[in-house]
Every structure is written in C-alpha cells, then in structure tokens.
C-alpha cells in the first residue's frame, strides 16, 4: 500500500500504527511532531492511530535555524 510520507510516495506492506511506523523508520517519537492527514496528531495517540492506504503523514523535527 502507498502512503504519502513527508511529501513523497512511500510503500508499506500493511497498515500499521504511527508508533510502529516511527519505529520502522528509527525515529525517536519524543523528538518529533506528526501530522496525520493535515491535523496534528497528539503523541499519546501514536500507538492507536493506524496508517492506511492513501494517508498523508508529515514527520518534523528541530533543525538548526536563526
């Protein structure tokens, strides 16, 4: 199944939770913010929110800036 991850098409074998997606990507959930289909997803909902075909996920973190 295809999702849109940070603006690009991304292939997943099957639906999985946002928490599992982050783990698959080796991303520390405490350091990022996630948008699920254009809405902020609270961290406590990462485990119970399932990513399905066609979903749009944005994962952001802090980088150097002024």
């Amino acid at each position: 199944m295809l999702i849109t991850l940070n603006g690009d098409a991304y292939e997943l074998d099957e639906p999985l939770s946002v928490a599992d997606l982050l783990q698959t990507l080796s991303i520390d959930p405490r350091r990022v913010a996630v948008e699920y289909n254009y809405s902020i997803l609270k961290r406590q909902l990462f485990a119970e929110t399932i990513v399905h075909e066609g979903d749009c996920i944005e994962i952001v973190n802090f980088v150097g800036g002024g």
Partner: peptide, 9 residues
C-alpha cells in the same frame, strides 16, 4: 532558536 523541518526519512 531552532527551525522546524521534515525529518530526513
């Protein structure tokens, strides 16, 4: 200050 950007997947 820090900036907010997409994680490099």
């Amino acid at each position: 200050t820090v900036a907010v950007r997409r994680v490099n997947i």
